Measured scan of single mutants.
Amino acid sequence: METPSQRRATRSGAQASSTPLSPTRITRLQEKEDLQELNDRLAVYIDRVRSLETENAGLRLRITESEEVVSREVSGIKAAYEAELGDARKTLDSVAKERARLQLELSKVREEFKELKARNTKKEGDLIAAQARLKDLEALLNSKEAALSTALSEKRTLEGELHDLRGQVAKLEAALGEAKKQLQDEMLRRVDAENRLQTMKEELDFQKNIYSEELRETKRRHETRLVEIDNGKQREFESRLADALQELRAQHEDQVEQYKKELEKTYSAKLDNARQSAERNSNLVGAAHEELQQSRIRIDSLSAQLSQLQKQLAAKEAKLRDLEDSLARERDTSRRLLAEKEREMAEMRARMQQQLDEYQELLDIKLALDMEIHAYRKLLEGEEERLRLSPSPTSQRSRGRASSHSSQTQGGGSVTKKRKLESTESRSSFSQHARTSGRVAVEEVDEEGKFVRLRNKSNEDQSMGNWQIKRQNGDDPLLTYRFPPKFTLKAGQVVTIWAAGAGATHSPPTDL
């Protein structure tokens, strides 16, 4: 069977082979063929449309019947899901209200924590001031004790010197008594010597008188005998007598002179000795008097100093007792304040721990409710997609609110971060928990396990030699990294520990 286009092609070929045509004729024939082709295509399209309309009418009838069946089946399910969705919305509203209440309680707890922290800071300042005052008082007490020990040692030294001076005074008084006794003995010996000298002088005078009498008696006897002796021998006898008398007189005078000289010499020697002894004793007595006077003056001065030191010692002891009493009071006050502060800190920690436990429990309940609501929403969306139902505006708002919801909680030295990733086909969620104590904190952990970043959050360098970082993902083997023995993380510095297959460059001390 030939198509209209094939017939047109045969006809035009025959005409062209029979007679030659002009260009205008050819153009018109071409346009006519195009119109015929378009008409044929339109006829085919109309036939196809008619057949499709016939099929569409049958399909519409089948769809109508199916919609009636589906509407009867879905009406009950939709009512049940609407009821469950209403319950879920009520639960979500109650959870939102509970969350708002918990946020209010958390803000209240934070305000109480700030207030307690301020009070604690003030108490710590008072405690530091009390400890500083206690240290000052202890230093003052130590200085006073040192001064007291010095004063006591000086007192003992002065008492020793006073005892020595008293012994010296006793010795000097004994020496003075001995000197006085020697002086009295010398004076007695001097008086005795003077008496003996006077006696010797009297004896000498008496001997002179006796010698004169004997001489006169001898002259008288000789004169008497001379009268009786011969005149011839008188001159010879007289001359001999005169010579004998002269010789006797000379001898007697020599003896008297020698005895006189010896007596005067002895007397002068004894007198000089007595005078020297008297002068020496008088000098000793003067020196003893002077030394005794000086000793008395020094004793008086030392007694005055001793009394002054005793007064100072009594004042120091009184002040020391006052300082000890004040120190005891300060210690009791400090202990009482410290006990009160520790009790308040313990109560505050217990209260904060209780509130944190309650908040953690409520947060766990909220997370469980969020997971249940998310599961209900997934089931509802799956059924709506299976039944090709359009979601209600309320469910769209709930989905938008659930997809944009995120929370971040800080308290008790722990930080909890939650992130949620969404897509049109599926939804997944993960959470990161970080707890830090000390100078070094974990700043970031790569989700794909490529690196771990640490930061020194203090103002001092931290030695991290032979420290270890351990990481384990589920049931995978435990991964451990040990820092070099001499590694030190500077204040405020960040160090990144890269995985072996991350392709990073080893560049200490920032990249390991």
Results as ranks from 00 to 15, higher is better:
244 A>H: 07
208 K>T: 01
180 K>M: 06
246 Q>H: 15
240 R>S: 08
219 K>G: 11
225 R>A: 03
266 T>Q: 07
253 E>S: 03
265 K>C: 13
256 V>P: 03
187 M>N: 03
205 D>W: 00
262 E>M: 10
178 E>M: 12
198 Q>K: 10
268 S>R: 15
237 F>K: 04
229 I>N: 12
251 Q>A: 08
210 I>W: 01
256 V>S: 01
231 N>A: 09
194 E>Y: 09
188 L>R: 00
216 R>G: 08
235 R>L: 13
203 E>D: 01
218 T>S: 11
221 R>Q: 06
215 L>S: 04
250 A>L: 01
272 D>N: 10
180 K>H: 12
231 N>S: 12
204 L>Q: 04
228 E>C: 06
207 Q>S: 07
203 E>Q: 07
221 R>D: 07
191 V>F: 06
180 K>A: 08
224 T>G: 14
241 L>D: 07
229 I>H: 03
234 Q>N: 13
241 L>I: 09
271 L>P: 02
221 R>H: 07
231 N>L: 11
267 Y>S: 00
227 V>S: 12
241 L>W: 00
225 R>M: 10
234 Q>K: 12
181 K>H: 15
239 S>Y: 12
260 K>G: 04
243 D>E: 10
250 A>S: 03
248 L>S: 07
259 Y>C: 04
188 L>D: 02
200 M>W: 00
213 E>P: 02
198 Q>S: 07
206 F>N: 04
251 Q>D: 11
242 A>N: 05
211 Y>A: 15
189 R>K: 00
260 K>C: 00
265 K>R: 15
216 R>L: 10
272 D>M: 06
223 E>T: 11
207 Q>T: 13
237 F>N: 04
262 E>F: 00
182 Q>D: 14
226 L>I: 12
230 D>L: 05
204 L>P: 02
236 E>V: 07
262 E>N: 11
227 V>Q: 14
273 N>L: 08
242 A>E: 05
230 D>N: 00
264 E>V: 15
198 Q>R: 03
251 Q>T: 12
193 A>Y: 05
243 D>C: 10
241 L>H: 03
224 T>F: 06
207 Q>R: 01
216 R>P: 05
270 K>A: 04
242 A>P: 04
225 R>V: 09
214 E>P: 11
203 E>G: 04
233 K>D: 14
233 K>R: 04
197 L>R: 14
270 K>N: 11
251 Q>H: 08
232 G>Q: 06
187 M>P: 01
195 N>Y: 00
244 A>D: 11
204 L>A: 00
194 E>M: 06
226 L>V: 08
223 E>F: 03
208 K>V: 00
263 L>F: 02
264 E>M: 00
248 L>Q: 02
211 Y>N: 15
261 K>V: 15
217 E>R: 11
272 D>P: 03
197 L>N: 08
250 A>Y: 14
220 R>H: 15
219 K>M: 14
186 E>N: 12
223 E>S: 06
198 Q>V: 13
209 N>C: 11
236 E>P: 06
265 K>D: 09
229 I>S: 10
217 E>L: 09
189 R>P: 02
223 E>L: 13
226 L>H: 07
214 E>S: 04
199 T>Q: 00
197 L>T: 08
245 L>P: 03
179 A>I: 14
242 A>Q: 09
191 V>E: 07
263 L>S: 09
224 T>Q: 12
244 A>C: 05
190 R>M: 09
188 L>P: 01
271 L>H: 02
263 L>A: 05
222 H>A: 05
187 M>T: 14
207 Q>I: 14
217 E>N: 11
193 A>E: 06
178 E>C: 14
201 K>V: 14
180 K>C: 08
203 E>R: 02
209 N>R: 03
185 D>Y: 15
233 K>L: 05
223 E>M: 11
217 E>G: 06
239 S>Q: 02
225 R>H: 15
252 H>Y: 02
228 E>R: 11
194 E>H: 13
239 S>C: 15
188 L>F: 03
213 E>N: 10
272 D>W: 00
220 R>D: 10
259 Y>N: 05
227 V>Y: 07
211 Y>L: 14
195 N>L: 06
205 D>I: 02
269 A>N: 13
231 N>Q: 11
179 A>C: 03
267 Y>F: 08
186 E>D: 08
269 A>H: 14
231 N>I: 10
230 D>G: 15
237 F>I: 15
259 Y>M: 05
240 R>C: 09
219 K>L: 11
214 E>V: 13
237 F>G: 06
210 I>P: 00
197 L>I: 04
260 K>P: 03
220 R>E: 12
194 E>F: 15
261 K>E: 13
198 Q>P: 01
206 F>P: 01
248 L>K: 01
180 K>Y: 03
241 L>P: 12
214 E>K: 09
254 D>M: 13
271 L>R: 03
230 D>W: 00
235 R>Q: 11
214 E>R: 01
183 L>S: 07
216 R>A: 04
187 M>R: 07
229 I>P: 01
192 D>W: 07
270 K>T: 03
250 A>H: 04
196 R>M: 01
200 M>N: 09
197 L>K: 15
198 Q>I: 00
184 Q>C: 03
226 L>F: 06
224 T>S: 09
263 L>K: 06
268 S>W: 15
236 E>S: 08
216 R>S: 13
219 K>N: 09
270 K>I: 08
195 N>E: 02
242 A>R: 06
182 Q>C: 15
267 Y>W: 07
227 V>I: 08
252 H>N: 09
265 K>P: 01
184 Q>N: 03
204 L>N: 14
239 S>W: 13
211 Y>V: 11
197 L>S: 06
186 E>I: 14
267 Y>D: 01
230 D>T: 07
267 Y>R: 00
258 Q>W: 07
213 E>W: 05
235 R>S: 09
206 F>G: 01
184 Q>T: 13
252 H>A: 12
190 R>W: 01
211 Y>I: 10
243 D>W: 13
205 D>N: 05
225 R>Y: 12
210 I>Q: 04
234 Q>D: 12
228 E>Q: 11
222 H>K: 00
232 G>I: 01
179 A>R: 08
245 L>I: 00
192 D>C: 09
239 S>N: 14
255 Q>G: 14
223 E>N: 05
265 K>M: 12
243 D>H: 15
259 Y>V: 09
241 L>N: 09
179 A>E: 14
197 L>A: 12
188 L>G: 01
198 Q>W: 01
244 A>V: 09
204 L>E: 05
195 N>V: 02
257 E>C: 15
258 Q>H: 10
190 R>L: 07
224 T>I: 08
231 N>C: 06
220 R>F: 13
191 V>S: 04
218 T>Q: 08
210 I>H: 02
179 A>Q: 10
179 A>M: 14
195 N>H: 06
186 E>Q: 08
252 H>M: 09
269 A>D: 08
263 L>M: 12
219 K>E: 08
233 K>G: 11
257 E>F: 14
270 K>Y: 00
244 A>K: 08
207 Q>W: 03
210 I>G: 01
229 I>F: 14
244 A>Q: 02
196 R>C: 03
254 D>P: 03
203 E>K: 11
265 K>A: 11
251 Q>W: 02
259 Y>G: 03
259 Y>T: 00
227 V>T: 04
202 E>T: 06
191 V>K: 00
252 H>Q: 10
182 Q>E: 11
182 Q>P: 04
217 E>M: 08
236 E>Y: 01
250 A>V: 11
220 R>A: 14
229 I>T: 07
201 K>D: 01
181 K>A: 08
216 R>I: 05
244 A>M: 02
178 E>A: 05
